[in-house]
Design a protein around this nucleic acid. Structure first.
Ligand SMILES: [Mn+2]
Ligand SMILES: [Mn+2]
Ligand SMILES: [Zn+2]
Ligand SMILES: [Zn+2]
Lengths: 140, 140
DNA sequence: CGTCTAATTGAAATACTGTTGCAATTAGAT
DNA sequence: ATCTAATTGCAACAGTATTTCAATTAGACG
């Protein structure tokens, strides 16, 4: 995943969006990162000279998501609480349009799978499986 | 999952916590719900008479999480952004103690599985698989 | 190149979410 | 019924997210 910035710029151009400094800066940071970044994560990574207004970062990311340049992965903020399941896992369907979240049961049991290299360093207490997309209603 | 409230109250008692109105109210609401609830979701579900201070709801939930009466499922808040993967899926390990989030590759490909009854009503654009627990560092 | 303008950014105001400290209230032990 | 530690509510605050509008700028065009 190295051509990321280059390719993203192409897609911006193709869709008639300007190649601005804030957009380039954010793309560079995302390319370097190995973990998901929040708007404020990004802000903190910028030097004083290249500082950006948080509002700008939000808008840049919003655009990137619209163009599918980045995925919006739901992490952070607070907590929704749920009754624990037998196997300690949760399965959700989330509509990207209306935000509706529904919990569901997997039809042939839990598909949990922990890579062995992770298992060494990490004590698992629960896991979550989330499917994002568009619900029936929002398809009109 | 019907004995939920009763069992929760038992565990509160066993651990020397008081059975208060706010705690009972929140337990009832969670039992009724079929989807995860945020503190403010819960607040909105309460009538004027039984109204609770949001701070109280936060603290009640915090206790419930500690006693494993509910799971803290990470949804909502804003966005962390990530470069999309081939298969449109993301796999994270999240430490419940320090909050560190790492993305990882599944060792034998993507374990994505969409129950057929969901597939009918829902157009999937991406999915996320998240493992929560305690990282090496935080185990001391 | 410079000019021009629609697109983009930043500043300010505001709303929502989450946390902390302290005083008032209350569950439940005696 | 009384007493007290545990719990709740209030107030103040910090962090996150959104909206409006004025200032700036990318890049199209001459
Ligand atoms: Mn599972
Ligand atoms: Mn996957
Ligand atoms: Zn929807
Ligand atoms: Zn940790």
């Amino acid at each position: 995943m190295k051509a990321f910035v280059k390719q993203a710029i192409q897609i911006l151009e193709q869709n008639g969006y300007k190649i601005t400094n804030p957009r380039k800066q954010v793309l560079e940071l995302i390319q370097k990162a190995s973990s998901p970044l929040s708007p404020y994560d990004l802000q903190k990574m910028l030097s004083k000279e290249e500082a950006l207004n948080p509002v700008t970062i939000y808008r840049v990311l919003e655009l990137f998501v619209k163009l599918h340049l980045v995925h919006k992965v739901a992490r952070g903020g607070f907590v929704k609480c749920s009754i624990p399941t037998e196997e300690g896992c949760h399965h959700f369907v989330v509509c990207n349009s209306c935000g509706t979240t529904k919990e569901f049961a997997e039809d042939q049991g839990c598909h949990f799978h922990l890579p062995t290299n992770i298992a060494k360093d990490f004590t698992v207490t629960s896991h979550t499986y989330e499917i994002a997309g568009i619900c029936k209603k929002c398809k009109k």
